[in-house]
Amino acid sequence: MKTRLLRSFLKPELVRVNISATCKREAILTLLNIVDDAGSLRDRDEAERVVFERERNMSTGLERGVAIPHGKTDSVDNLLVAIATKPDGLDFDSADGQPAKILVLTLSPAGRSGPHIRFMAEISRLLRDDVLRRRVVEAQSADEIVSLLTR
């Protein structure tokens, strides 16, 4: 019941394991590329601007190595989510200072109501579980991550 949103929005083709990015900026650009490559972005520059602006106001690095960069933008029609893992971790300017190992980019349409924060809450609540978080970081394929998060 409590993974309803994850179930409807997670797609394996928007998930990458062990990305090569080494800093926050690169990581976010990688996530945006994942969405853009799938042909889901109307205006990539606009999406990039929104996400980085949100990041400038306050870092979206949560505790325990999870980061949730996000933005509301007209360049998407539906909620889109891209997930990337970085087992070595990268600095995301988190409040607890821990390097981010799981990165979740959420984009949803601006000017329209619908789940956005609710979606991020669902994934972040799930990732509070130490065992699950470790298994996601260690996952070797996109399908494995999706099945871990929607079980």
Binding site: R54, N57, M58, I117, M120, R128
Partner: peptide, 23 residues
């Protein structure tokens, strides 16, 4: 307990938009 994460993230987002206003 179960809604805590949602409530926390909403507050966090509101705080972020406050920062944006100040900027």
């Amino acid at each position: 307990d179960i809604d805590c994460e949602f409530a926390r993230l909403v507050l966090l987002e509101a705080l972020a938009s406050l920062v944006k206003v100040f900027e």
